[in-house]
Amino acid sequence: MDVSSRYRESWEGYWRETSDAPGEAIWDCDPSLGSVPHSELLVPHADTSLPVVDLGCGNGTQTRYLATRFARAIGVDLSHAAIEHARRADTTGTAEFEQLNLVDHDAVRALRERTGDTNVYMRAVIHQSEPQDRPAVAAAVAELVGTRGRAFVAELTPASKAVLQGAVESPGGPPEKLRRVFEHGLRPASVTDEEVPDLLRGAGLEILASGDTALPQTEHLPDGTRIDLPARWFVLAGQ
């Protein structure tokens, strides 16, 4: 199974045209706003002696922090260009990075065979995936956690659409970082409220805890307000 060529090229094009500057990608928030609070939700449920795999790691900002909380951190992304960003940014070799297509079951299984059961961190991947690929993305989480790992998953809710629409309609049009997302054919916040938990349960994952949150972005409205996108988080176990 593979993602569509359009989807793959959208991400390759986006990351090729993104500089190494921290925060240039709209979702590249500081770990203090992402993986730090998320780890506080995951760690009480997790065996931190197991590795953690950051699915959809992008340029690896969150992966590098996760490496300080878990015995080993591996960031994976569909885009080769993203992985190149991540490797350049990780000047001290804190984490490991590799290209991985989450809907390629054989590739996901091969990763788990190398690592054993792992913890998983996944922030805003399902909502950006094409609808036909979302069950495979959820299945990849289940494959990697096995029976001993735990997962933290955060996904945008439909309420994010209104926030994004407001940004698009702001004076001067969409802010630059958001405009770049749309120009590359990426369409955020396209899942329903129940789709994500249904996909996770359908993959055989047990929801241990969940709650509402917001995913801070690195872009602001003309009045200086930071764009924070409504989201829901889940801590999950395999069965």
Results as ranks from 00 to 15, higher is better:
178 L>G: 14
126 I>Q: 03
159 A>K: 06
126 I>E: 03
127 H>A: 15
171 P>F: 12
186 L>T: 03
212 D>T: 11
136 A>L: 13
199 L>K: 07
158 P>D: 05
151 A>W: 12
149 G>A: 06
190 S>R: 15
193 D>H: 04
198 D>L: 13
156 L>H: 10
188 P>Q: 06
191 V>Y: 07
180 R>N: 10
184 H>M: 09
207 I>C: 05
165 Q>V: 00
210 S>H: 09
180 R>P: 04
143 E>F: 06
148 R>K: 13
131 P>N: 04
216 P>T: 01
145 V>M: 12
221 L>F: 14
186 L>I: 07
162 A>S: 14
155 E>I: 11
127 H>N: 10
125 V>R: 02
217 Q>G: 14
129 S>D: 11
163 V>K: 02
143 E>I: 12
133 D>T: 03
203 A>M: 08
185 G>M: 06
209 A>K: 05
185 G>S: 09
216 P>Y: 02
128 Q>W: 10
133 D>A: 15
194 E>F: 08
152 F>D: 03
160 S>Q: 08
194 E>K: 11
225 T>I: 05
222 P>W: 06
159 A>W: 04
136 A>K: 07
221 L>M: 11
129 S>F: 04
164 L>T: 01
129 S>K: 02
121 Y>S: 06
209 A>W: 13
206 E>Q: 15
122 M>T: 12
141 V>Y: 07
182 F>W: 02
198 D>C: 12
137 V>M: 08
176 E>S: 14
179 R>H: 05
203 A>S: 07
193 D>A: 15
138 A>T: 02
173 G>P: 07
178 L>E: 04
162 A>H: 00
195 E>T: 00
183 E>F: 00
173 G>A: 12
132 Q>N: 13
149 G>W: 00
159 A>F: 05
122 M>G: 10
176 E>L: 12
170 S>K: 02
120 V>D: 03
216 P>H: 03
129 S>H: 01
213 T>G: 00
121 Y>M: 05
211 G>V: 10
206 E>R: 15
139 A>M: 08
183 E>P: 04
159 A>T: 09
119 N>W: 14
153 V>A: 12
123 R>I: 09
171 P>H: 06
168 V>I: 13
119 N>E: 04
170 S>P: 01
214 A>Q: 12
120 V>S: 06
132 Q>Y: 13
144 L>V: 01
221 L>Q: 03
121 Y>N: 06
191 V>R: 12
191 V>P: 09
170 S>E: 02
140 A>K: 03
180 R>E: 13
142 A>P: 04
216 P>C: 04
125 V>P: 08
191 V>G: 08
206 E>G: 14
171 P>M: 09
164 L>R: 02
179 R>N: 13
162 A>Y: 00
176 E>D: 14
134 R>K: 02
175 P>H: 01
207 I>K: 05
153 V>Q: 03
186 L>S: 12
171 P>R: 08
141 V>G: 11
223 D>G: 01
149 G>E: 02
172 G>Q: 06
222 P>K: 11
150 R>Q: 09
194 E>I: 11
217 Q>M: 15
186 L>A: 11
161 K>Q: 13
147 T>S: 14
209 A>R: 08
194 E>M: 10
221 L>P: 00
217 Q>D: 11
172 G>V: 05
136 A>V: 07
162 A>Q: 07
128 Q>H: 13
146 G>K: 09
132 Q>E: 14
206 E>F: 10
224 G>S: 01
173 G>M: 02
194 E>C: 09
